[in-house]
Nucleic acid binder design. Structure first.
Lengths: 330, 330
DNA sequence: CTGTTAGCGCTTTCAA
DNA sequence: TTGAAAGCGCTAACAG
């Protein structure tokens, strides 16, 4: 591996000058800079991350903490983060923490603390107090996304408003008998609870009686839940599922029951999951990929000296009509 | 941030001893080790990745190159890699290279070359010759998975055999009129081409005439392709799709056409995509997550001094029957 | 078994 | 604008 002194020798300057020329920090005459650049290119020189990090105290890397790498939402956000960081020449150090408690513990007490990163983005891994404290103790910018985390400042979607928006859409189409498939959780500020409350509030405001069915955020779970709803004597004319996967489960259940979507029943989800496209699913898109990009921008901004407050913010969402909702029958 | 000398002072030993005690390398008396450990714990000391890397030449990190973070196969393999590496205390440095040519170029010419990693795992990002050479020039172990890459030694599934297995399964069920939905590519050693050839070979061997429909590996594309097949006068009694997503597309098309799966038509896919579960899809599972774990083991083994040959290997696959295939009708 | 002492490869004052 | 030199925080010989 070619080092900085080799470049210096070839360019006929000192290593200090090479460093200045290549990093862009400090004064270097244009002609010298050019000579150095040429020498570096010819030699294929690239600075050693370790040496540079040790000398400057900055690693040019951001740590990303993700609970489930193989779930749509997380991997999509991660893709956005990656885009946002690569653009600025930062590397990503990935910390998967789905694992067992002890492994998880190790990630927070060791891996994350090796000072390998200049900042951290964490995607809703339900950190406990110790873990959050451990992160804050790092003394680097931290941005949390997805799910208002009381322990950290957060970039988050207003899921109460999301729930209301989806519900209003159905109400506006004339539906009155609307069911929500989601979490049983009524209180608290978890994402599912907020979406549920948004639904309940909007229904109340419209003077309509809300129906509820609980499911576990999987296609299958929602499918079962939907089947019950469809079999009931008081069959809803519309379903608002708290995730696209669940909405798809509902669509599958409806089809199996011989119902036509959206003529017989309207179904709306939340997420903007690609999968919904193939089912013509109307949804409240939360632009997961953008969330990642925003998070990346936020950490980098703070590294550049922006006020920490900047990392607190709300993320956009929007109704995406694809045909699984229509005017209420009858 | 507390440093090694602070720990040394507190434990009443030299920094060298602290280093030895904490890293486990070199002789240290049990009692001293304990004292050091205690001091480190009390102080919350963790070695600096940069300093350690600079001094040892090892970063305790593996670079992972992934083309699409938000596609099922890649994110699932990544999850497996993460599991495999975390267990051994290695960090992952993630390089997403889906981006435009110039960004991609930068990843290979700069990011990857900062010597931040001790080894590299690359997931089938169709590297060109320059990129592969750039990786090899790093002088660290490289393991490629998914798709036989002629430029690198590879851990790969025998997709020819996969194609044969899926086809044989259908033939064994008595089907003769079987269609393959997949790539138009007949020659070459890409994954789709191999699966197709496996199908063709097996059909030939059985003296059955193969039918083909091309699709782009999306649900929608396959759905369209399947519709054509189902409308044709020579409707197949079984479909072998080259991916689970396409198989799902075929299932959806069949349902829309009023056909019952598997009574009217059998459908089999390849991948082991979770999604298939909800459709009762029979498939050839390629255990994506295990592929990641295997790759992780392979790089680490080579770091531990195992022969590079070890990284060449074949990955398992197996028929997973879930009900979308049945005896041929009639 | 432990301490002393050079570095690892770069960056950054400080002087020139 | 440039160079010399002192570290950044840790590890690994080498002595003891």
């Amino acid at each position: 591996m070619v080092g900085i002194d080799e470049v210096a020798r070839r360019a006929g300057v000192s290593t200090a000058t090479v460093s200045r020329a290549l990093s862009g920090r400090g004064p270097v005459s244009p002609v010298t800079r050019q000579r150095v650049q040429t020498a570096a290119d010819e030699l294929g020189y690239v600075v050693s991350a370790a040496a540079s990090a040790l000398a400057t105290g900055r690693a040019r890397a951001i740590g990303v903490i993700v609970p489930f790498l193989d779930r749509w939402f997380y991997s999509t956000v991660l893709a956005g983060i990656s885009d946002g960081l690569v653009r600025r020449g930062f590397d990503i150090t990935l910390y998967g923490v789905s694992a067992a408690a002890e492994e998880r513990q190790r990630v927070f007490s060791d891996n994350v603390r090796r000072r390998r990163v200049d900042g951290i983005i964490t995607i809703a891994p339900e950190l406990d107090a110790d873990e959050a404290a451990s992160l804050r103790g790092l003394g680097v910018p931290i941005v949390a996304i997805a799910g208002p985390n009381p322990l950290l400042t957060t970039l988050t979607v207003d899921d109460l408003a999301v729930g209301r928006l989806a519900t209003r859409h159905l109400l506006d189409l004339g539906h009155r008998r609307i069911a929500h498939i989601g979490s049983p959780e009524v209180t608290g500020s978890s994402v599912p609870a907020l979406r549920r409350r948004g639904f309940a509030e909007q229904m109340d405001a419209a003077g309509a009686r809300p129906l509820f069915a609980d499911a576990d955020f999987t296609i299958e779970g929602a499918s079962t839940a939907a089947r019950h709803l469809l079999d009931s004597t008081e069959r809803p004319t519309a379903i608002f599922a708290a995730s696209d996967e669940m909405a798809i489960g509902a669509i599958l259940a409806a089809r199996e029951a011989g119902l036509h979507v959206p003529d017989d029943i309207s179904i709306i989800g939340v997420d903007g999951n690609e999968l919904g496209r193939w089912f013509g699913l109307t949804t409240v898109d939360q632009f997961a990929r953008c969330q990642g990009e925003r998070a990346a921008e936020a950490v980098l901004a703070e590294l550049d000296g922006a006020a920490p407050a900047l990392r607190r913010g709300t993320l956009p969402f929007a109704l995406l009509e694809r045909g699984s909702t229509a005017t209420a029958p009858g």
